[in-house]
Design a protein around this nucleic acid. Structure first.
Lengths: 174, 174
DNA sequence: GCAAAAAAGTTTAGGGTTCAAGCGTCTGCG
DNA sequence: CGCAGACGCTTGAACCCTAAACTTTTTTGC
């Protein structure tokens, strides 16, 4: 179990925990991680496939449209990057393609010419509305064997996981 | 399911469903999906970052090494593709780079010259062992605020989600 | 005021991802 | 036998992704 042993005094204590854990059948963090990874890979491949076939769009594009859909006034590219967890440089190319497809427009903000704001066009709003509805249906379909109670439970437990990871990431920034 | 409402007769019916679900505070499937997506994105960005900094490796490369590590005799590229959920074409490039780095070797199978088998080199085994140990530690760190019972519970509930998605995918292949 | 620092986007280089098309290599069946 | 189709892998085109360097514009500190 790879105890990154630092100090002999705490070792004795830690060993008990380790033994208990070993008894339980192990590496729960690793197993949970691998399971989440395989599920999201499986589902997002399918979502990607359907978006491509039915809407000639990609998942990151859908993601950006979703953010803009609920912000009538548009969002600056940096904010878009933060919300979608996509790096800044990547936003540029995505916005280029969405703009070329006529789904969004880019406008330079008066008062600060460094800032670019992206917003949906009329066509962008209409197209996204269709996509979102289909997307929701696909998910209901993919999770149709899971009852509502379980869904709600997993949802809340995953909040714990998310908070743990968030905190860990913030704290390791020192 | 996919109610791309085509027909006015069914519309009225669908509306009731929508209203009921809205009352519950709904779209659990969608919310669960978005949560899983953001967690895996967050964690895998961090794992990627550390793999790059500490081992000059990428996550898919790590994934391939992991599969080969537990198969002393190596795996054919097609099998590798299936297990890692990476498309065939992609395996080629990944194997090219891993081979160039001296971590794996490719051998043509006697008896069927279409088949290529990849296996770890000595250096590959050693490097992977270090990576795996670090990787496991990172996950324990990222999930350190989640207690063991919760981990075990989420793990088992996610199995339900995974099975649902698997079944749904297989059945829609007709 | 003005140079230095910071902020917002873009560009670049190196991977990764998919799908579809291509090329050898087997194999089943007529 | 022989060859049509299946199989296993590689290639190519288009997109996504990241980090790091670079531009342009604005702010900050004297």
């Amino acid at each position: 179990m790879s105890d990154n042993s630092l100090d002999l005094a705490t070792q004795a204590v830690d060993l008990e925990i380790i033994v208990d854990r070993a008894r339980d059948g192990q590496k729960l963090q690793l197993r949970l991680w691998l399971r989440m990874l395989s599920i999201t890979k499986m589902i997002s491949q399918e979502i990607r496939r359907r978006l491509r076939i039915e809407f000639q769009a990609t998942l990151p594009q859908f993601d950006i449209l979703a953010q803009l859909y609920r912000e009538r006034d548009g969002l600056r590219l940096g904010e878009l990057s933060r919300r979608t967890m996509v790096t800044n440089g990547n936003i540029t190319g995505l916005a280029d393609r969405l703009e070329a497809d006529g789904l969004i427009v880019r406008e330079i903000l008066d008062g600060d010419r460094r800032v670019t704001v992206a917003k949906l066009t009329k066509q962008g709003r209409e197209t996204f509305a269709e996509m979102a509805s289909a997307h929701e249906g696909w998910l209901r379909e993919l999770m149709s064997d899971v009852d509502q109670d379980t869904l709600a439970l997993v949802l809340s437990q995953l909040a714990t996981v998310k908070n743990s990871a968030s905190r860990s990431l913030v704290e390791s920034e020192d």
